[in-house]
Amino acid sequence: MDLLANVLISAMIAATPLVFAGLGELVAERSGVLNLGVEGMMIIGAIAGFAAMLATGSAILGLFAAMAGGALMAALFGVLTLTMRANQVASGLALTMFGLGLSALWGQAYSGRSAPPFPRLYIPGLTDLPFVGKLLFGQDGLVYLSLACVAGVAYVLTRTRVGLILRAVGENHDAAHAIGYPVIGVRYLAVMFGGAMAGLGGAYLSLVQTPLWVERMTAGRGWIALALVVFAAWRPLRVLLGAYLFGGITILQLHSQALGVKIDAQLLSMVPYIATIVVLVLISRDSARARLAAPACLGKSFHASS
């Protein structure tokens, strides 16, 4: 029973960076911008958060620095693709490489240093409950924040005017422009929100999950987050579900090995990607549904004159 609770707790921890990064990318993509630089923004968040935390001694300030770092990277991407209308795919890939390189350079002074453990929630009585106590009331604050973000994004996207404008820009930027919405402005904000969330996901790795700084520590999580958005068919709640599924599979696989159950590790490592491909096939099988899922203007540059 304790073991099961531990597996679930670890799965939530493994999933949280994916929730943040996936959710941020989802918002950017819903506004019509495909930013493949998630990995680069995450790693910048990881080092920015770590550096700020060591400099100020405050984990909270570290998190803000991580968000600022990620958002700055995203703003750079915005200048390239929104203002200068460069190709989004190429710019995104470049952003990832830039982020990995810059973080390695910046992080030289920090490799080998470590952060104090991140505080966990403790509510006397509730946290001590058997099984559900630590699972529901004993996580670190960021796990709860990630859940709140999912709810918040889901609400804003579907129930508010801001969400409607964002979706309009992503679905048909010419129409949105004709009505008078600032397409480029909306996209800048969405992309920078995505960057801030990716930065937060990176900081979760360097401040909470490990907690230390080593080069390239995101190790491909940015790419999984990108796959996750497709897997989730651009819906926030499904991002959460998918992240927990992907996180859960990783953890389950590690635990099953320690228990001596034989499952091929390689096979399980492929699952997130296979699941994404399956979803892609499913949603593109019928063109009406495909149109429903992906924002129609995803990846297209916007020209106010056209």
Partner: peptide, 27 residues
């Protein structure tokens, strides 16, 4: 001895997860 294979030489997050899994199983 309990062995967990992580299929990577370097992934701090996954290595920490593996350590957690082992500790949860009394290592």
């Amino acid at each position: 001895i309990k062995v967990v294979w992580v299929s990577t030489w370097f992934d701090p997050g996954k290595e920490a997860d593996a350590a957690k899994a082992l500790v949860d199983q009394s290592a």
